[in-house]
Each structure stands twice: as structure tokens, then as C-alpha cells.
Design a protein around this nucleic acid. Structure first.
Length: 714
RNA sequence: GGGCGGUUAGCUCAGUUGGUAGAGCAUUCGCUUGACGUGCGAAGGGUCAUAGGUUCAAGUCCUAUACCGCCCACCA
């Protein structure tokens, strides 16, 4: 017989993959089909700040396995793709680019022009990302693609905000928040990262006390001195007692406060507080109803209260202030090497300066009447505690609970431009909160729109249903929500997963998904995080060009387990390229052996064939079972091993002689055909391109495309 | 400070309800076998971190210790 000319040459992914992908698209194979049980999943939307890295590739590989498996099982399968505007990250990146190229800031350009530039950047970035996702073979339904900042999502965001405001779950309050003096915006608690620093620790004389501080530059306004009520050393001082003390700018009246949060063993057991610029101090002040005064402005400079130091940046002020303290004789001693943690912004690395500001918050503790009096916190906890949502691996459930138990109100307003503008308008004392502005001519009527935008995770929190058309009662929403599974990295369990649970439970009274599968981070062969600055990042597109998407996908699946980080090197990817080649050659051999036809099942089968077929059933069951239990790494490895070391090394080798014997050949042909037909189906979710290509060359009685061919029954 | 993981072959990691240790890569030896040298056959290599305990049986369960990692955290 004549082999298809494609089979005469080695498998070439470069000329095959794009063609196959176009064919799937043309046949609308990624869109939900039929009336079967629904399977739905949203793609965690990559940020439009750049291009995809191997972590994204791993994510797509895992998700595509789930989706293709579901589809082959005949489910009405939807995998909904999208991208994220990543508010702060994108804005900062574009600001930096503009500043480098033109020396201009966003304020030089103005809001409108600046947003045009960000949008242009985001669009370009989006196009590249979509191209990469396609290269990986993702069977996502592009007809439903969404963007966290597009019109429909904007509508959903405003609707969510308004409903939550009306329910009293969103409020405007003046509270201590995390302020980033460089980016000039607040950030949420979850965006903080603790960074260890070593700096001097000062013991200062404060009236009769010695107080300890690492930040003398914030101490100008300190007029409360705090100690533990049970501290015997200070038993002579009473709560509320007033004392005249000499301090930085002369005499002040200090008040003694007794508070149980004080650690008696730390320093001298006494401290003064700066409620305007320290979260701990603010909490103490709130407990006792103390006054607070701003010392540092939003640019990080000292205010007039600092006397001669006013206008000085806090970073420069410390030395001068310590000198003055020394002159005044107020320095008792200095410990030079004090190690402690300071909060920095995880996006940008600037030290956070807490400030008391008027911001918008989500109240996580308020009882909600329509949810039996449960708070958002309780709703989030209950979703997982009840077993309604299962997290894989299970250990993350504990981490999730721990996070929820420590959760405070969520600051959602940001002083940046790229994002969903807060749907609130002000006119004098009047406030209007609505999906649409207060009137068509609101500007001329004296209304002023809130200039702030929402935390990017606010819109991300709506993702499972904003992508399906909410707030409208669309057919998609009805058919596909709650989604079946959410697959994402464990690093955004709090940022994203928890917020989706919050939003969905509140706004739809539904769980957003039934299962959460958390993958690990992809690292290089030395276990380091991949990053451009380290120069160790591996470009998925380069790997696809060299070894094919199938090889890349296998390398990202095998040897990885949920929740643990993955090490990947080019060698590993190369290894799976060899597997593609092996598969290709097995196909060449078997197609030649069966002469391009579907072999008939012989009347009777030999014992060895029967046992090989039984083994095949066992393998099928095993693989199916592994996929059902999200053990993709095991399923992939077992398939690899069976195909190479059982099918190729044993069965095919043993088939060579009998194929030459006319009386034995038909049974062998039947065996080879049956096994390889099964392998193509089982392998398809893992290596979709090469299996689809081989399917097109395969004599078959069923579907034209493997992507729609039924998964073997067990 | 609190919590959660990890420690298995030279390297990267599996080991799903406890039943005489596995894979890939690497190493060594041998193969111009007509599907594939991107290959084939064979071999070496592990007191499963340490110390106890439960059990007929422990890499797998329990306790403690050491080291590594991660998350959370209001010791100023």
C-alpha cells in the first residue's frame, strides 16, 4: 500500500500544528455542542502586561487536558478564554515606558490621553497573548472571549458595586490604609509583601520612660505612651494619667494608655504610638478613642508638625532627627543591627507608608439578611467548609481558612486611572451611586465623578459569571454557572479564588465552581523562579518552535503534581520531542501492517491477544481514573510508558514475525489496530496536535475529528 | 511568633486504601535488527533525613528532632 506522503517524513510539528488548529476552529470544535451534561471552566485571564511564560503554558496544558477529556466524554463543554487588564501592573508598566521614551508622566499627558496609550499597549499585548494561547493548542471558545475591562464586564462591575453598596456591604470610610508613596495609590492587604531589613533601633527618653522605635522620624506627634496593664514596672502609672514630657519640639502633654496588645518582653515594654502611620498604633488608638495626627504627607514628606524638618522626605529626615534627639539628650542608646520586617508593595517594591485616608471598602463582617445573617467572611468560609467547593491539593483548604480568619475589610479604591472607575458621583454633600451617571447632563449639573478606580481583583472576582453575561439572565449563565472546575496557581488563592467565592455567593447565591485545582509555580532547573531580570526565563514560543507544542505540554505535565512547584529545563522538553517521534513511527509501522484498513475482529483470539486486550482495558481504566482524580501527571506518565515500553518495545516487536505468517496476521492486525486506536484517544488531551494529525491518517468508522471522538468506555 | 509542606537512585520527581522500592534524565556494556539511532537490548546504583512507637507487615500511620521551603502575622 502507499503511505500518505506525510508519513514518509519525520513528524514536523512546525508545519502541522497551525494547520490542525485552524481546522478545529473552522469546524467550530471548541464551542459547546449537544445537550449533554455541561462542563465549564473559565481560563484565568493572563495579564495584558506582556507575553506568556512557561507558567501560563503549564496552566493551559492542564486545563486543556480537562477540557478535551470532558469534550470526548460527550459533555457540553465550554472553556472560556480572556485577559485581565491588571490595573496597577499595566498602568505602571506603561508609565515607565512613556517616561523612558518621552520623559513625561501620566499627569503631563492627562487622563484621557494616558488611557489611550495604555489601551493601545494592552491591545497589542492582548494580541500576542492570544496568539500564544493558540500555539499551545488551547481548545478555548474564542467566540466568547472576554476582557476584564471591556463593555460587558464594565456593566457587570458597576452592577455589582451598586448592589453591594445598596446592601451596605460597600462603604466609604476614613481608615488606615496601605499607601504606596511612589505609585501614589492604596494597595490591599494581600498585595503587601514583608521584606526583611536591618537598621538601627533607637531607645529614646520620653519623660520618665524609655521607649523603643525603629522610626524616630514619625514620632513628632506622639502624645500617647502605651504599656501593658499587668506590667509591674509601670504599676505606678494609671491609664489616662497625664504627664508633661520634653520631646522633639519642646514640652508636650503625654497620656498614659494601658493596652494588652503590648509585649512586655520587647524593648522596655513601653512605646509611644503614631496612629496616623502605623497599623498597630491605629488599632490601639481606635480601641481607646485616641486622636491621631498626620505627620507624613502622601509624597512621603514631613508636614509642618515636624517644625524645622517640614518638607523633608522621611528617608532623608531620620539622620537629622536623630542628631537633634542626641542634642536634646533624649537618646538613651542605639542598637545598630535590628532586624525586622517592613511592608513593601509586591508590585513595584516600594515601602508602604500607612496613611489614614477616605477610601471605599468591602465590609466582610456585616451580617447579610438575604443570606441568613451570614457575613461575606462566613460565606467564603462555608463554601469550602461545607464541601461545596473542594480544593486540590487538600492542604490548601487549611491555608484558605487561615486567611479568611485573619481577613479585614477589603480596600477596593485605587488612585490610578487604568481600571473600572468607581460608579459614584458627588455634588456637595450629595452622593449618587449608580450603574449610570445621575443624569445625562451630570457634568453641567455640578456632579463630580469619583476619580478612583477599583482594585483589579474586584472585576476578577466576577469572572465566572461576568463572562457568561451577568447581570443579564443569559442562556449561557443558566447553562454554565456554577462552573465545573477552576484551575489556577496557588499564589492567587486569596487574591482571586476567595474573591470569586465572595462575589458569586453574594450576587448569585451560587458557588462559582465545584472544584479548585491549584498548580505549582514553574521554576528553572536550579529551582529558581523564572524572570527576565535573571535571564533564566524560557520562552514557550521558542520551545514550541523547536520541539512542538505537544512536547512542551507533556514536559509541563509529567513530573508535576498539584500544589508543588515544577522544575523545567530544555532537556526535559527535548525528551518529549522524542516521544512524538516515537508515536509517529509506531503509526507508520501499524498503518503499514494493517494496510490502511480497519481490520475485522477474528472469530477467535489467542491467549496472548486476549491478555493484551485485557491489559489495554486495565490501562484505559487506570488512565481514566487518574484523570477523574486530577492526577494528570500520573496519567501522562503511564501513557508514555505504555506506548513506548509496552506497545513499541514488546507488542510491536512480537508482532513482526507473525505478521509474515498469513494465518496469524489478521489477529495481529486487529490487535495493533485496537491498541493504537485506543492510544490516540487516550493521548489526545495530552498531545492534541500529533494525535489529531494521526487520526486524519487513521482508517476509522467514527468521527472525522479526534477532538470530538468519544473517550473509550470502561 | 503562628500555620502548612518537603526530605526516596548522581539529578528531577512518582509511589493513589500500609503488603518484598519506581520513572525520566544521567552512567556503564553490547547492538549498521528492513517503524524509529530522536533507536534497540542489558547492567549498575537507594539502611526511603534521624530517633522512637503502632502493626503479622511502615516510604506509606503516630510522636519527637534536624535541615530546606512556602504562607500568614499589629514585637513598636
Amino acid at each position: 500500500m502507499n503511505l500518505d506522503e506525510r508519513l514518509l517524513k519525520p513528524y514536523n510539528p512546525a508545519t502541522t500544528e497551525d494547520r490542525i488548529y485552524r481546522e478545529w476552529l473552522a469546524k467550530r470544535a471548541f464551542e459547546p455542542q449537544g445537550e449533554g451534561e455541561a462542563f465549564s471552566m473559565v481560563m484565568p485571564p493572563p495579564n495584558v502586561t506582556g507575553v506568556l511564560h512557561l507558567g501560563h503554558a503549564a496552566m493551559i496544558a492542564i486545563e486543556d487536558i480537562m477540557v478535551r477529556y470532558a469534550r470526548m466524554q460527550g459533555k457540553r463543554t465550554l472553556w472560556l478564554p480572556g485577559t485581565d487588564h491588571a490595573a496597577i501592573a499595566t498602568q505602571t508598566k506603561v508609565e515607565e515606558m512613556i517616561y523612558k521614551a518621552e520623559g513625561k508622566t501620566r499627569h503631563d499627558l492627562g487622563r484621557e490621553e494616558f488611557l489611550k496609550r495604555v489601551t493601545a499597549f494592552a491591545t497589542e499585548s492582548h494580541d500576542k497573548i492570544v496568539e500564544q494561547i493558540k500555539k499551545l493548542g488551547a481548545s478555548t471558545d474564542w467566540t466568547r472571549e472576554a476582557y476584564t475591562l471591556d463593555e460587558r464586564r464594565a456593566r457587570a462591575v458597576r452592577e455589582a458595586f451598586v448592589r453591594m453598596y445598596e446592601a451596605g456591604l460597600i462603604y466609604r470610610g476614613e481608615r488606615i490604609v496601605n499607601w504606596d508613596p511612589r505609585l501614589q495609590t492604596t494597595v490591599s492587604d494581600d498585595e503587601l509583601e514583608m521584606k526583611e531589613v536591618t537598621e538601627p533601633f533607637y531607645y529614646l527618653k520620653y519623660g520618665p520612660f524609655i521607649i523603643g522605635t525603629a522610626r524616630p522620624e514619625t514620632k513628632f506627634g506622639d502624645k500617647y505612651v502605651v504599656m501593658h496593664p499587668a506590667d509591674k514596672r509601670y504599676a505606678n502609672y494609671e491609664h489616662g494619667q497625664k504627664l508633661e514630657v520634653t520631646w522633639l519640639n519642646g514640652q508636650i502633654t503625654a497620656t498614659v494608655i494601658k493596652d494588652e496588645s503590648i509585649d512586655m518582653t520587647f524593648g522596655t515594654g513601653v512605646m509611644t504610638i503614631t496612629p496616623a502611620h502605623d497599623t498597630t498604633d491605629a488599632a490601639i488608638a481606635a480601641r481607646h478613642g485616641l486622636e491621631s495626627e498626620q505627620i507624613i504627607d502622601l509624597k512621603g514628606k514631613l508636614l509642618p508638625i515636624a517644625g524645622e524638618f517640614a518638607g523633608l522626605h522621611i528617608k532623608k529626615a531620620r539622620g537629622a532627627i536623630v542628631e537633634k534627639l542626641k542634642t536634646l539628650g533624649l537618646v538613651e542608646k542605639i542598637e545598630e543591627k535590628y532586624v525586622h520586617n517592613v511592608p513593601v508593595n509586591s508590585r513595584g517594591g516600594e515601602t508602604i507608608e500607612p496613611q489614614i485616608l477616605r477610601q471605599w471598602f468591602v465590609d466582610v463582617n456585616k451580617p447579610i439578611a438575604e443570606r441568613n445573617g451570614a457575613s461575606l467572611k462566613a460565606l467564603m468560609r462555608e463554601a469550602v467548609a461545607s464541601g461545596g467547593i473542594k480544593i486540590i491539593p487538600e492542604q490548601f483548604e487549611k491555608i484558605y481558612f487561615h486567611w479568611i480568619d485573619n481577613l479585614r475589610d477589603w480596600c477596593i479604591s485605587r488612585q490610578i486611572w487604568y481600571g473600572h472607575q468607581i460608579p459614584v458621583w458627588y455634588r456637595g454633600e450629595e452622593i449618587y451611586v449608580g450603574v449610570e451617571p445621575p443624569s445625562a447632563a451630570w457634568q453641567s449639573e455640578g456632579w463630580v465623578a469619583d476619580p478612583d478606580t477599583l482594585d483589579t481583583w474586584f472585576s476578577s472576582g466576577l469572572w465566572t459569571f461576568s463572562t457568561l453575561g451577568w447581570p443579564e439572565a443569559t442562556a449561557d449563565l443558566k447553562a454554565f454557572h456554577p462552573t465545573t472546575v477552576l484551575e489556577t496557581g496557588y499564589d492567587i488563592l486569596f487574591f482571586w479564588v476567595a474573591r470569586m467565592i465572595l462575589m458569586s455567593r453574594l450576587l448569585l447565591n451560587q458557588l462559582p465552581f465545584k472544584t479548585v485545582y491549584l498548580h505549582g509555580l514553574v521554576r528553572d532547573e536550579k529551582g529558581q523562579k523564572m524572570s527576565k531580570s535573571k535571564g533564566n526565563s524560557v520562552d514557550p514560543l521558542a520551545m514550541i518552535a523547536k520541539y512542538g507544542a505537544d512536547a512542551l505540554r507533556l514536559s509541563l505535565i509529567i513530573g508535576t503534581s498539584p500544589g508543588s512547584d515544577v522544575r523545567i529545563s530544555e532537556d526535559k522538553i527535548r525528551g518529549y520531542k522524542n516521544f512524538s517521534n516515537k508515536l509517529w513511527n509506531i503509526a507508520r509501522f501499524i498503518l503499514t501492517a494493517i494496510e490502511g484498513e480497519v481490520p475485522a475482529r477474528p472469530e477467535s483470539l489467542s491467549a496472548s491477544t486476549t491478555s493484551r486486550l485485557a491489559e489495554l482495558e486495565a490501562v484505559t481504566k487506570d488512565i481514566t481514573d487518574d484523570i477523574e482524580h486530577y492526577r494528570f501527571y500520573l496519567a501522562g506518565e503511564k501513557l508514555y510508558h505504555y506506548v513506548w515500553h509496552t506497545l513499541a518495545d514488546k507488542i510491536i516487536e512480537a508482532a513482526k514475525a507473525p505478521l509474515q505468517v498469513p494465518s496469524e496476521a489478521p489477529e495481529i492486525r486487529f490487535l495493533l489496530y485496537t491498541i493504537f486506536d485506543r492510544m490516540l484517544r487516550l493521548l489526545h488531551p495530552f498531545t492534541p496536535f500529533i494525535t489529531e494529525e494521526l487520526w486524519s491518517l487513521w482508517p476509522k468508522t467514527e468521527r472525522e475529528l479526534l477532538i470530538n471522538t468519544p473517550w473509550p468506555k470502561i
